[in-house]
């Protein structure tokens, strides 16, 4: 051994360098199914999501005032008479079908169907390829429902006649 100056890192002398793997073993490659502590990993993300939602509410509330029309008057029926937007699809159906169908049977079937869904679809697989029937059925329902909601909300004017929303606006929030 020659008398070289010892290598010093942070006031500690390096006595030797050992070849091979670290004593604790290789660094583990984490998979998606490995677990992490909820605090902080999930809670931090939830906090950020919460702040973003609150920011959105704040911005919308600063920019747009909630609507307030003239005082309720039972003798003066507005035309068109519109339900809240989330019932616009039902109101649109009401224009085409008997009220028993549009007002009672369809909403009853939707709620009943959603409740029964996990007991009807007993396919245990989570992969999209093996769930084609369920996915297509649900997507068709979703598209039809959103379409009907849009039509009832924005495309209907006096006497429930068809209007183009860029010509006449009758949507109410």
């Amino acid at each position: 051994m020659d008398d070289k100056e010892p290598v010093v890192i942070d006031n500690h002398r390096v006595l030797g360098v050992v070849p091979g793997k670290p004593a604790v073993g290789d660094r583990k490659v984490l998979s998606e199914d490995d677990t992490v502590m909820v605090w902080p990993h999930l809670l931090v993300r939830h906090a950020v999501a919460a702040l973003l939602v609150l920011l959105l509410v704040m911005v919308i509330s600063l920019l747009f005032d909630a609507p307030l029309r003239e005082i309720a008057n039972p003798t003066n029926t507005p035309n068109p008479e519109k339900a809240p937007w989330y019932f616009a699809a039902l109101q649109e159906l009401l224009a085409h079908f008997h009220p028993l169908v549009a007002g009672v049977l369809v909403p009853g079937a939707i709620i009943g169907g959603l409740i029964a869904l996990p007991y009807i679809d007993r396919n245990l697989s989570l992969s999209p390829e093996t769930r084609r029937v369920a996915r297509v059925t649900f997507t068709v329902f979703l598209v039809v429902w959103i379409g009907l909601t849009l039509v009832g909300f924005a495309f209907r004017g006096p006497n429930w006649s068809w209007v183009w929303p860029w010509n006449e606006w009758h949507g109410e929030l």
């Binding site: 998606e32 199914d33 490995d34 677990t35 502590m37 909820v38 605090w39 990993h41 999930l42």
Partner: peptide, 9 residues
Amino acid sequence: YPVKVRRRE
């Protein structure tokens, strides 16, 4: 909350 979740979540 659960104490742990899978990383995918």
